[in-house]
Simulated assay, not measured.
Amino acid sequence: MLSYQHAYHAGGPADLHKHAALAALLARLTAKDRGVTYMETHAGRALYDLSGAEAAKTGEAAAGIGRLEGLPPSPFHDAVMSARAANGPSAYPGSPAIAAHLLRKQDRIVLMEKHPQEASALKRAMKTTGAEVHARDGYEGVLAVSPPKPRRGLVLIDPSYEVKDEYGRVADFVPQLAAKWPEAAILVWYPLLPTGRHEAMASALEGAGAARHEVGFEPLRPGGMEGSGLVLWNPPFGAAADLGAGRILAPQVLSA
């Protein structure tokens, strides 16, 4: 299914949760000189304009980053400020742009995006970063190029979950990838919806020793997203404690 476009949801509360955690994790992985490989299964377009019609239609950006007058100092804050310095005050970095800001010359970025329009925009946004962009199915693509060099790394799995069996596909994919690339930390994002479809997937992944972190927020529409969840498989040293102690920017601050 190729109808989903993240521009309608960029900068919302779920993005803040996911991207702040991602930035903190990348900062931890790059604390030492050894190179890392960063991959994504569903990369999106990397850069979003929050003054656009898409953001205005859903109101998610206004309910997310738009309600924060000033972000606290953090790797996520640095990535947002860098995107705005280069692209204007309404710019918002997607996960590929956050990674490109935080990673170094010795690191590698490999991005998968199946949606034709999003893949084209992704290639344009990342053309000066050295990132490898593949217009292909993310699950198949990441498995095909794993294990990479450098072997130490992180994979972000961030599908739209528009298709009901996506939860099962993620639950099956994570252990497959871990078996092929055991050095990788694997970060899975999922929405908290009234139907609770995420629960079986998240519980299965958490049961393998992964760290799990969820935050709730007011849905913008009846039956809409009630929160955001993350499961971190094979967490680097200290990363699980970061999640458990809330040492990331959590969307609860938006309702304070």
Rank of each mutant, 00 (worst) to 15 (best):
Met1Ala: 14
Met1Arg: 15
Met1Lys: 15
Tyr4Ala: 09
Ala7Arg: 08
Gly11Gln: 00
Gly12Ile: 04
Gly12Ser: 11
Ala14Gln: 06
His19Trp: 13
Ala20Tyr: 05
Ala23His: 06
Leu26Thr: 02
Ala27Val: 02
Arg28Gln: 13
Arg28Cys: 09
Thr30Cys: 11
Thr30Asn: 07
Ala31Gln: 14
Lys32Glu: 13
Met39Asn: 04
Met39Gly: 13
Arg45Ile: 05
Ala46Lys: 00
Asp49Lys: 01
Asp49Leu: 03
Leu50Glu: 01
Ala56Ser: 10
Ala56Lys: 10
Thr58Arg: 05
Thr58Lys: 05
Thr58Asp: 01
Gly59Val: 02
Gly59Ile: 01
Gly59Asn: 03
Ala61Ile: 05
Ile65Asp: 02
Leu68Thr: 01
Leu68Cys: 11
Leu68Trp: 03
Glu69Thr: 12
Gly70Val: 15
Leu71Gln: 01
Pro72Asp: 00
Pro73Tyr: 09
Asp78Phe: 01
Ala79Gly: 03
Val80Thr: 04
Val80Asp: 01
Val80Met: 08
Met81Gln: 15
Met81Val: 12
Ser82Lys: 13
Ser82Glu: 10
Arg84Ala: 02
Asn87His: 15
Asn87Pro: 10
Pro89Thr: 05
Ala91Cys: 06
Ala91Pro: 07
Pro93Cys: 05
Pro93Asn: 09
Pro93Lys: 09
Ser95Met: 02
Pro96Trp: 02
Ile98Gln: 02
Ala99Asn: 00
Ala100Thr: 00
Leu103Ala: 06
Leu103Glu: 00
Arg104His: 11
Arg104Phe: 07
Gln106Lys: 14
Gln106Tyr: 10
Arg108Val: 03
Ile109Cys: 06
Ile109Val: 10
Ile109Ser: 06
Ile109Thr: 04
Ile109Asp: 00
Ile109Leu: 14
Met112Ala: 15
Glu113Gln: 10
Gln117Met: 12
Glu118Ser: 12
Leu122Glu: 00
Ala125Tyr: 01
Met126Gln: 01
Lys127Pro: 11
Lys127Arg: 15
Thr129Phe: 00
Ala131Gly: 01
Glu132Met: 13
Val133Ile: 12
Asp137Cys: 04
Val142Met: 03
Val142Gly: 00
Leu143Met: 14
Leu143Glu: 11
Lys149Trp: 13
Pro150Trp: 05
Leu154Glu: 04
Leu156Glu: 03
Asp158Trp: 04
Asp158Gly: 02
Pro159Asp: 08
Ser160Gln: 10
Val163Ala: 14
Val163His: 09
Lys164Thr: 11
Asp165Ile: 11
Tyr167Thr: 13
Tyr167Phe: 15
Phe173Ser: 07
Val174Leu: 02
Val174Met: 03
Ala179Asp: 12
Ala179Trp: 11
Pro182Asn: 12
Glu183Asp: 15
Glu183Thr: 14
Ala184Arg: 08
Ala184Ile: 05
Leu193Gly: 09
Leu193Tyr: 05
Thr195Ile: 12
His198Lys: 10
Glu199Lys: 15
Glu199Val: 15
Met201Ser: 11
Ala204Met: 07
Ala211Trp: 10
Val215Lys: 10
Gly216Phe: 14
Phe217Met: 06
Pro219Arg: 09
Glu226Leu: 13
Ser228Ile: 10
Gly229Glu: 06
Val231Pro: 00
Val231His: 04
Pro235Ala: 08
Pro236Lys: 08
Pro236Ser: 08
Ala240Met: 10
Ala240Tyr: 12
Ala241Asn: 12
Leu243Ser: 09
Ala245Phe: 15
Ala245Met: 15
Gly246Tyr: 12
Arg247Ala: 07
Ile248His: 10
Gln252Lys: 13
Val253Asn: 04
